[in-house]
Structures are given as C-alpha cells and as structure tokens.
Amino acid sequence: MLGYILRRCLAVIPVMLLVAVFVFLLLRLTPGDPAAIIAGDMATPAQLERIREAMGLNQPLHVQFATWVGRLLQGDLGVSLISNTPVATMVADRIGPTLSIALLTILMSVAMAVPMGVLAAWKHRSVADYAVMTFSVLGFSVPVFVIGYLFILVFSLKLGWFPVQGYKPLGAGLGAFLSNAFLPALTLSTIYVALIARMTRANMLEVLGEDYIRTARAKGAPERTVLFRHALKNAAVPILTVIGSGFALLIGGVVVTETVFNIPGVGRLTVDAILARDYPVIQAMILLTSFLYVLVNLLIDLSYSIFDPRIRY
C-alpha cells in the first residue's frame, strides 16, 4: 500500500513537469515580444531592453525554463508585472473566498446529487427519475453565468432573500458568510450536481440489479439498509471518480461565478491577470490550478480502497 502511494505520487512529477513546459511555451511561443506587450506601444528600445533583461528574456529558452522551475521549487512563484507584489502573497490574500465557496459547493453538491441519483435509480422510470434526468440534462446545457444571474434576479432582486453580490469571510460570522456565499455555491453546484446525480443513478441502476441486492431484500433487510449499505457503497468508486474529474468543471465555474457575484477570489485574479497579460501571475495560476487538479484526483484514486476493500495495492 505504502509503495503504491509512493509510486502514484512519483507519477505526478512527469505530468506536472510537462504542464510546466506547456505553460512556459504557451507564453514564449505566442506571436509578439512579451517585453513589448508589457511595455505597451509607447515604449522606447531602451525600456524594452531593460524589461527583457529584468525578465531574463535574453537568455536561451532552456536556461529561462530551468531558472523558472528552479525558483518554483523554492516556492518562489514570481512577482506580478503590474502590482509588483509577489504572486504567492496575491494568492494568499485571495484564496480564502475561493476555497470556502468551493468547499461549500462540493458539500452542497454531494448532499444534493447523491440522494437524487439514488432516488432516481430506486424509483426507476418514475416521475422522480424523469425529473432528476431532466435536471441533469438542463444542468449541462445552461451556462453557469446565466444560472447565476437567474438566481440573483429571483432570490436577490425579486425575493430579497440574499444580498445581490459581494463576499463576507467566515470571520464575519457564519450567518453573514452563508448569506453571501449560498447563491454562488448554489450556482456553481448546478453542473456538478447534474454530473454526480447522473453518475450515481447509472451506477446504482447497475448495482441494484445484482444478486446480492436480491439476497439482502430476501433476508428482510430494511430498504434503507439495502440502498445505502449494500448498493451505494458498491456504486461509490465510479461516483468518486466523477467527483474528481468534475473538479476541472469546478475550477472553470469558480472563475465565472466569482465574476458574476463580484467575489474577490483567485478565479477573478487569474482572469484579470490573463486579460492584463501579467505573465508571472498567469504562469503561476495555471500551474497551481493544474497541480490542485492532479492532487485531488490522486487523493481520490488513493481513497478507493476505503470504499471498496477489495482494491488492495
């Protein structure tokens, strides 16, 4: 088991190295001189030269790459070209809102989607099943920002239940935090719920047809035990996998949701950096989010054995 964990962790290294190469090349191989883009149209040749010197753009590509990766490994994410603050500080300042809303989203999504999927499979071809499936197709089809604005329109502007936009940290009190974070999390969770509910339903349908479910029912186990102990636990591994792969959707959704709800998080930070061509921030943010995605999927892979003891490494 320990050996397997170690091997899986080591396998992350080449993937992350390749991601680093992609991100690095993405910025270096695009048409145009990064120094000219940074300096703007009015820059003199001397100014351009100074920027190239400062960024190390005069050195050969592989030297630039090695310097950059070397600094990354020491925890140096670079310094923003625009605000001149270290990227690590910028991320630390703005990670709070993003993390808390993302966690709330995952909690809400799983809490809504798994029961929906179980219900749809249990009452196969019933009204409830069709309702869940309709919701799940809709969740994939309506853009997340349209959902966000619809929620603002209905729950904030018409009903006045929630503030329209903005963010309050947990430190300001749970009530204040939730009243601001609930709508963004609900918005963000629609596509995630659609994905997880669909997967739960499909796997539950398969498991509910198994012999041991009939046996469990035959020996008189209560339906709740059959559904959650016998069936759901055996359907858990693919559901976990989809929670992991859906994490990429969550990252994309965070960026959009933070824009809709005016939340000062890292998603907005990234988009602003990209639009302003703040190269060090772009590099660091794409690398960090990719790393997070790989890490989450690694943890999920490793957790399989908890849900399915037959999986031994």
Binding site: V15, L18, V21, L26
Partner: peptide
C-alpha cells in the same frame, strides 16, 4: 499519452482564456 495527460490537467477554461488573450 503523457502529453495528453498534462494537457488534460490544465483547466480548459483557463487555458482557453490564456490562448485568446495572447493571440
């Protein structure tokens, strides 16, 4: 396949915005 794994690890929305912003 390793290259594809790496490409899949980059969140597609971020990659797409970066590509448009730069090009």
């Amino acid at each position: 396949m390793r290259m594809m794994d790496a490409l899949m690890a980059i969140p597609s929305i971020l990659l797409a915005i970066a590509l448009v912003a730069l090009n």
